[in-house]
Design a protein around this nucleic acid. Structure first.
Length: 953
RNA sequence: GCGGGUAUGAUGGAACUGGUAGACAUGCUAGACUUAGGAUCUAGUGCCGCGAGGCGUGGGGGUUCGACUCCCUCUACCCGCACCA
C-alpha cells in the first residue's frame, strides 16, 4: 500500500468528527490541563502559514498531555467583533454578521485541515449574543463596584454610598478620581445627578470627560495600546487628541496588583518587562505649590524632591485645567496662540519632533514652598497632560529637558547637586551631594530624598507618592460592530445599568454603517432603538478587547445559559496552564484579561488570582516580499522596469519598488530570484496598466512582447529584489496552508513547521526544506510496507539494537516536548527512523511504540498505521511510551582522548572500567606517547562516561 | 536615550548541569538504478593544507586541564518603550 496522505487525512477527519474523538468532559477523575491558543480574529484573508505555528505546538502539547493521562482542555474560538468587518461593510454593504460568519467558516475548515484536536462544541464567538450577554454582565458588575484601597479589592458601590451617607467622602479609602471632599450632610443635599457624577469618580466602569485618541478616518476613539507612533494600529490612520465624554475602565486601581502578580508568572522576561514599563511605577513626592494671587494650588509629582531648591519655574501641560485661570490679560494672546499651535500639531508630529523646545509664559507666578520666592509659571508641550499631574516643578540644573527649556527662554538655573566627585555622571543622575539647598546642604542625594519628604509632610505641603504611567482604559467606540452597552440614561442624563434579566441587549439592524456626524456611532441613527420611553440608550459600543478579556473562562463551560461559567467548571479547570501566542498582545489583551480576572477573583467568581500561569511567545513566520524596480522617469512615454542587478546602489532613489505576486517569481525567496519571460507575461496579465512597459535586464530587453537578447540568451532573468517582511495581502506573498497540505499532507506540514527551529524564533517561510519531512514520513511508512507495497510488520521479538534506538528516542522526545523544543524532537524521530531502517527493523513491538511516540506530531498517519496494526480504538487515546533505562546501557563506551583539551583520538573501554584503569590506559596510549615527545604528563583528567584529558607540557 | 533579545558551515538549525562543535534537514558534488527524473539509494561536504597538521561558534581580553556555554569589553542586527517629571 502506498502512502497517500490526502486519502488518509480525509478518512480520519471524518472519523474523528463522527466519533467525537476530541470531546472534552468537565467531569473526570483525571488531573486537568488547560492549554490555550490566542484568540484569532477571523479576517477575510484566512489563515496563512504563519498563524498555525503556535497552534501546531499547542496541539502537540495537548495530545501529549492527553496520552499522559490528563484531561486536557484545548479549545478554539473567534474574536469576531472588530473594525475590519465593519470597514468591509462600509465598502460593500455586506452585514458584518454575514462576512464574519463566512470568515469563521473558512477559518474552521483551514484549522480542521491541519488536524487540530479542538472540541468544537466549546467554540466561543464574541459576536454571538449568548456570549456577549456575559460580556455585558461583567461590564455591569464593573459599573456596580469601586476599588477599596484598604481591603485591596473591589467592593459593591452600595457600601460606598452607605459610607458617604454616614461619614461623607473621607471615611472610605477608595481608588478614585474625585477632586475635593464632602461631608455626610453635603452628600445628602446633593441631587441625583450630582450624586451620579460623584460616583462616576469611583466606579470601575465609569463615564469621563477627557482627552482621548480620536481617529477621524475610522470615526472612533482608540485605547492607548491601539495607537502606535501616533497612528492607528489598524489601518495606520492619523490620531489626534480630542476631549469627549467616554466610558473608561479603572484599570489603574489594579496597577500595583498587576505589577506584583507578574512575579509569580512563568512568562518571558521580555513580556514581563513590557508590562512593567506600561504600568510604569515610579517613586517620588507629591508637592503642592501656592499660586501668587490665587486660591488654587498646583499639584506636581517629582522623583527628585531633593532638588526642590533648584526649582526656578513651573511648567503646566497646555491642556492643564488651570491654564485659562492663571493666564494674565497681558499674556492671553501669547498663550492662546501657543495652544492653537499645539492643537494643530498631530500626535505624530509631536512625537517625531521632540527636540524643538516650545512654550509660553502665563504671566502668573507660584510661590516656592521653601524660599517663598516668586517663580514663573509656563506652559509647554514637553509636559504631558496624561502623566503625573500634568504639571512639574522645573529644575534646570538637574533635568535635561528643563535645562533645555530654561536655556531657550532664559530662565535662571541654580545648581543644587554637586557631582564633581562623579566625573562621568550625567545631569539628573541620582549621585552627588546637595548644595544651595538650605537644610539639605552636604547630604548625599540618597539621604536628601527621604529628608525632604519628611519635611514636606511636616509642613503639610506634600508627601511621598508612587506614580504610575498606566492610564485608565478607554472603553467606548463610536462603531457598530461591537457589544452594545447595557446602559440607559434617564431624563437627567443619569446612567443606569440594566437589570440582568434584560440581557443580552442585542445589536439592532442599521441602514448603513457610517458613523454619524459629531463623532457618534451608527447606532445613534436608529431612533426607535435609542429611545426607550423616558430613557435613551447608550449608542457607543465596546472595544475589541471587551470580548477577549474573559473568553478563556467561557471555554470551561461554553454553553451555559445561566452563568458565564458554572462554579463547578471554574473550580475544575482553574486557570490556563499554558498559553501560546505572539507578543503583539503584550500590553493590550494580556493586561485587560489580567485586570478582569482579578476583578472576578475579588468577587469570588473565579478561583485564581491570575489567568495565565505560563505563557510562551511564538515567533512570527514572515514572508519574502519580491519587488521589481520601476524607473520613476518615463522613456518616450513608456514605463520601464529594470533588473535589480543593473541598479547602482547610489541611484536607488530614482526607482520605485513595485511588489510582484510571488507566484510569478522563479527561485522565489532566494537571493537570485528573478522573473523569466513567462513570469513577466503573468505580471502583465495581472497588472494590465503596465502593458506597454519596457523590461531591461542584463541579457536583453523585452518590449512589446518581443525579447531582444544579447549574447543569444534564451531568457530574460529580470532580477527581483527580495526582502523579508510581513506575510500580507498587500505584498502578494501570502502562502495558504491549504495549498501546502494539498501537496504534502497535513502531517508533513505540521512536522515541517516544527522542524524549522525553536518556537520562540521568527523566521521567513521557505518551502525548500519541506522535502525533508516529506521523505521522513515516507521512510516511516516504508518500515510498515515493503517496496512492493506489501505489509511487512512481523511479531518476532525486538533486537537489542532496535530497543536501544527506540528508547533513546522516547527519552529525548518526552523531554523535548516538556520543554517545547519541538524542532529537536522532529530530528530525534528522523534519527530513530533512519536507524531502524538500517537495522531492517519491522518489529511490531518497536513500531507500535514509535507510532505512539509520533502521534502528537503526525496524528493522521499514525492513526492510520495504528489501525493497520490492528490496534483497538484511537491511538490518541492510548498511553504515551515511557523509556526503560535498561535498554540504554552500553557494555562498551568510546571516550574521546584529548591532549591539552584538544581531541586527538578515541579510547574504547568496557563500561565498568575504573577511573584508575582508564587513566592508565590513557597514559600508555599510543596517541599520548606520540604527542608526549620529550614532555611530561602533568595530569590526567577522567570524567567517567564522558572524556579523558591528558595534560602534558 | 532607556529596556529586552540575538549572533554557530552555502542555508534552517543542534550541542544536557563547562567535557568529541556543526546532530537532523536543505543545498551542493560524485556515483548506482533508470527511457527519463524535480523519484529512490550510496558516498562526500566547516575553512586552509598533498600530508603531518593548523585554524574555527560576531571582534578583543579573562577564568579553567578543558569555554558556543561562565566573567569583562566592544561591534552589528532585531524587538519593545520613548519629552514619563
Amino acid at each position: 500500500m502506498q502512502y497517500q496522505p490526502n486519502q488518509i487525512e480525509a478518512k480520519w477527519k471524518r472519523h474523528w468528527k463522527e466519533n467525537k474523538t476530541y470531546k472534552v468532559s468537565n467531569s473526570s477523575t483525571k488531573p486537568k490541563f488547560y492549554i490555550l491558543d490566542m484568540f484569532p480574529y477571523p479576517s477575510g484573508a484566512g489563515l496563512h502559514v504563519g498563524h498555525p505555528l503556535g497552534y501546531i505546538a499547542s496541539d502537540i502539547y495537548a495530545r501529549f498531555k492527553t496520552m499522559n493521562g490528563f484531561n486536557v482542555l484545548h479549545p478554539m474560538g473567534f474574536d469576531a467583533f472588530g473594525l475590519p468587518a465593519e470597514q468591509y461593510a462600509l465598502q460593500t454593504g455586506v452585514h458584518p454578521q454575514e462576512s464574519t460568519e463566512t470568515n469563521i467558516k473558512k477559518y474552521k475548515s483551514q484549522l480542521d485541515n491541519l488536524g487540530f484536536n479542538y472540541d468544537w462544541e466549546r467554540q466561543v464567538t464574541t459576536c454571538d449574543p449568548s456570549y456577549y450577554k456575559w460580556t455585558q454582565w461583567i461590564f455591569i458588575e464593573l459599573f456596580r463596584h469601586y476599588y477599596n484601597t484598604e481591603l485591596n479589592k473591589a467592593k459593591p458601590i452600595e457600601e460606598l454610598v452607605d459610607s458617604f451617607e454616614a461619614h461623607g467622602s473621607e471615611a472610605i479609602k477608595a481608588h478614585h478620581s474625585f477632586e475635593g471632599s464632602f461631608s455626610a450632610e453635603e452628600w445628602k443635599q446633593m441631587s441625583g445627578k450630582q450624586k451620579d457624577e460623584v460616583l462616576m469618580n469611583y466606579r470601575l466602569a465609569y463615564l469621563k470627560e477627557g482627552y482621548v485618541n480620536w481617529c477621524e478616518a475610522l470615526g472612533t476613539v482608540l485605547a492607548n495600546d491601539e495607537v502606535k507612533d501616533g497612528l492607528s494600529e489598524r489601518g495606520g490612520h492619523p490620531v489626534e487628541k480630542r476631549s469627549m465624554s467616554q466610558w473608561a475602565l479603572r484599570i489603574t486601581a489594579y496597577a500595583e496588583r498587576m505589577l506584583e502578580g507578574l512575579e509569580s508568572l512563568n512568562w518571558s522576561t521580555a513580556l514581563k518587562t513590557m508590562q512593567r514599563n506600561w504600568i510604569g511605577r515610579s517613586y517620588g513626592a507629591q508637592v503642592f505649590f501656592d499660586i501668587d494671587g490665587h486660591d488654587q494650588k498646583i499639584e506636581i509629582f517629582t522623583t527628585r524632591p531633593d532638588t526642590i531648591f533648584g526649582a526656578t519655574y513651573m511648567v503646566l501641560a497646555p491642556e492643564h485645567d488651570l491654564v485659562s485661570t492663571l493666564t494674565t490679560p497681558a499674556q492671553k494672546e501669547e498663550i492662546e496662540n501657543y495652544i492653537a499651535y499645539v492643537n494643530n500639531r498631530s500626535e505624530r508630529e509631536r512625537m517625531s519632533d521632540v527636540k524643538t523646545v516650545t512654550g509660553a509664559f502665563t504671566g502668573a507666578y507660584a510661590k516656592h514652598p521653601f524660599s517663598d520666592e516668586k517663580i514663573p509659571i509656563w506652559i509647554g508641550e514637553y509636559v504631558l497632560k496624561d502623566y503625573g499631574t500634568g504639571a512639574i516643578m522645573a529644575v534646570p540644573s538637574d533635568d535635561e529637558r528643563d535645562h533645555n527649556f530654561a536655556t531657550k527662554f532664559d530662565l535662571p538655573i541654580i545648581p543644587v547637586v554637586d557631582q564633581s566627585a562623579f566625573p562621568n555622571a550625567e545631569r539628573g543622575q541620582k549621585v552627588g551631594s546637595m548644595i544651595n539647598s538650605d537644610f539639605l546642604n552636604g547630604m548625599e542625594v540618597k539621604e536628601a530624598i527621604p529628608a525632604i519628604c519628611q519635611k514636606l509632610e511636616d509642613k503639610g505641603i506634600g508627601k511621598k507618592k508612587v506614580n504610575y504611567k498606566l492610564r485608565d482604559a478607554n472603553f467606548s467606540r463610536q462603531r457598530y460592530w461591537g457589544e452594545p452597552f447595557p446602559i440607559k440614561y434617564d431624563k437627567d442624563g443619569i446612567a443606569i445599568a440594566r437589570d440582568f434579566s434584560e440581557l443580552p441587549l442585542d445589536l439592532p439592524e442599521v441602514e448603513d454603517y457610517k458613523p454619524s456626524k459629531e463623532g457618534k456611532s451608527p447606532l445613534s441613527k436608529v431612533s426607535q432603538w435609542v429611545n426607550e420611553g423616558e430613557y435613551t440608550k447608550e449608542t457607543d459600543t465596546m472595544p475589541g478587547y471587551a470580548g477577549s478579556s474573559w473568553y478563556f473562562l467561557r471555554y470551561m463551560d461554553a454553553n451555559n445559559p445561566d452563568e458565564f461559567a458554572s462554579q463547578e467548571a471554574l473550580n475544575y479547570w482553574q486557570d490556563v496552564d499554558l498559553y501560546i501566542g505572539g507578543t503583539e498582545h503584550a500590553v493590550g489583551h494580556l493586561m485587560y484579561s489580567r485586570f478582569w480576572h482579578k476583578f472576578l477573583f475579588d468577587k469570588g467568581l473565579v478561583p485564581t488570582n491570575e489567568p495565565f500561569k505560563k505563557l510562551v511567545n511564538q515567533g512570527m513566520i514572515q514572508g519574502v516580499i519580491e519587488f521589481i524596480y520601476l524607473d520613476k522617469k518615463e522613456h518616450d512615454g513608456r514605463k520601464k522596469f529594470i533588473c535589480a542587478g543593473l541598479i547602482d546602489p547610489e541611484q536607488k532613489e530614482a526607482f520605485a519598488k513595485i511588489p510582484v505576486h510571488v507566484d510569478f517569481v522563479s527561485n522565489y525567496g532566494s537571493s537570485d530570484s528573478y522573473l523569466n519571460l513567462e513570469g513577466i507575461k503573468k505580471f502583465l496579465d495581472w497588472r494590465p496598466e503596465y502593458a506597454n512597459a519596457i523590461f531591461e535586464c542584463a541579457n536583453g530587453v523585452l518590449k512589446d512582447g518581443l525579447f531582444n537578447s544579447k549574447d543569444s540568451a534564451m531568457d530574460s532573468n529580470l532580477i527581483t529584489q527580495s526582502e523579508v517582511g510581513k506575510m500580507s495581502k498587500r505584498y502578494f506573498n501570502v502562502v495558504n496552508p491549504d495549498d501546502v497540505v494539498a501537496k504534502y499532507g497535513a502531517d508533513c506540514f505540521r512536522l515541517y513547521e516544527m522542524f524549522l527551529g525553536p518556537i520562540e524564533q521568527s523566521k521567513p517561510w521557505d518551502t525548500k526544506g519541506i522535502d525533508g519531512t516529506s521523505k521522513f514520513l515516507r521512510k516511516l511508512w516504508g518500515l510498515f510496507y515493503t517496496e512492493n507495497e506489501e505489509w511487512a510488520v512481523n511479531n518476532e521479538s525486538a533486537s537489542k539494537e532496535s530497543l536501544k534506538t527506540l528508547h533513546t528516542a522516547i527519552k529525548k522526545v518526552r523531554n523535548d516536548i516538556e520543554n517545547l523544543s519541538l524542532n529537536t524532537s522532529v530530528s530525534a524521530f528522523m534519527v530513530c527512523v533512519n536507524e531502524l531502517k538500517k537495522q531492517n527493523c519491522r518489529n511490531r513491538e518497536i513500531l507500535k511504540s514509535l507510532l505512539q511516540l509520533l502521534a502528537p506530531f503526525a496524528p493522521f498517519t499514525t492513526e492510520e498505521l495504528w489501525e493497520k496494526l490492528g490496534e483497538e480504538g484511537s491511538i490518541h487515546h492510548s498511553s504515551y511510551p515511557i523509556h526503560d533505562e535498561s535498554h540504554l546501557i552500553e557494555s562498551e563506551v568510546t571516550l574521546p582522548l584529548s591532549i591539552n583539551g584538544k581531541k586527538r583520538g578515541e579510547l574504547t573501554v568496557d563500561a565498568n572500567t575504573s577511573k584508575e584503569d582508564i587513566e592508565d590506559m590513557a597514559r600508555n596510549h599510543e596517541i599520548t606517547q606520540k604527542w608526549l615527545e620529550d614532555k611530561a604528563i602533568r595530569k590526567v583528567i577522567v570524567v567517567p562516561g564522558r572524556m579523558v584529558n591528558v595534560v602534558i607540557g
